[in-house]
Simulated assay, not measured.
Amino acid sequence: MVEVSDSIERIEAIIGMAMIAGSLMKATITLFVIQVILTELFGLSNDRLLSNPICLTAQLMALTLPATMKEWEEIVTIVHPLWVAMVYVLPLLLVASVAFCKERFGKVQS
């Protein structure tokens, strides 16, 4: 607790509330952007049609967060590097190998 004077004593509570409000605004904006993108992608006329399934999916994903700091440490040190390798590196290698094969075999055939 910060104890400078009576007026500044509870400033950390105000900062905490501002951080919570900022997190909620970011989550709301993210859900709205996902809804707009999916509505445009599927060509739906009603943009509110996907709001409940998207929010339910976000809620279910939030329930899978780790409960303890030890679980969080395990996710960051073990799962995250594997996730990065599978999601970012393998598709990049796949696209690069397809492009290389197209370039190499495309010149041989023509």
Rank of each mutant, 00 (worst) to 15 (best):
T39Y: 03
R10T: 04
R10Y: 11
A58M: 01
L38S: 00
V98N: 03
I78M: 09
T30I: 04
I54V: 06
Q59I: 10
E73L: 09
V89N: 05
Q35L: 04
I78G: 03
S7V: 12
E9Q: 13
I8M: 10
R10V: 06
K70C: 04
V4K: 11
P66T: 02
E71D: 11
I14C: 06
T68N: 04
V76W: 14
V95T: 11
M17N: 12
A96K: 03
T68I: 00
V76P: 01
W83Y: 12
S7M: 11
P66R: 00
M69A: 12
G43D: 04
E103V: 04
V4H: 04
L50R: 01
V33C: 07
E103C: 08
S51V: 08
M17D: 14
V79R: 10
V76G: 02
A85N: 13
S23V: 12
T64H: 08
F100Y: 15
W72K: 11
V4D: 01
Q109C: 07
N52F: 14
A99C: 12
R48M: 12
P81T: 01
E74T: 10
L24F: 07
M61I: 08
L44E: 06
L31N: 02
A27Y: 01
N46Y: 06
Q59W: 04
E40W: 11
T57C: 12
E74W: 13
G43I: 01
S97E: 11
G43W: 02
A18P: 01
T28F: 15
L65D: 06
F32N: 09
K70E: 15
L63V: 06
E103D: 15
G106Y: 00
P66I: 03
V76E: 09
P53H: 01
T39W: 00
H80C: 11
S51Y: 03
E73G: 03
L41G: 01
I8N: 10
S23C: 12
V36C: 07
L63I: 07
L94F: 14
L93S: 05
P53D: 00
Y88D: 07
L38Y: 02
R104K: 15
M19F: 09
I15E: 08
A85W: 13
V4S: 05
H80E: 13
M1T: 07
F32D: 08
P66H: 04
A67N: 11
P81Q: 01
M19V: 08
E3D: 11
M61H: 06
L41K: 09
V89H: 04
Q109E: 14
F100E: 05
V87D: 06
A99D: 10
W72D: 08
A21K: 08
A18E: 06
P66D: 02
L56N: 09
A62D: 00
G43Q: 02
L41S: 05
W72F: 14
K107G: 06
L44Q: 02
V84E: 12
C101W: 11
S45H: 07
I37Y: 03
M19K: 13
L60V: 09
S97V: 11
A13L: 14
P53K: 02
N52E: 13
I54P: 00
R104Y: 14
E73I: 07
D47I: 15
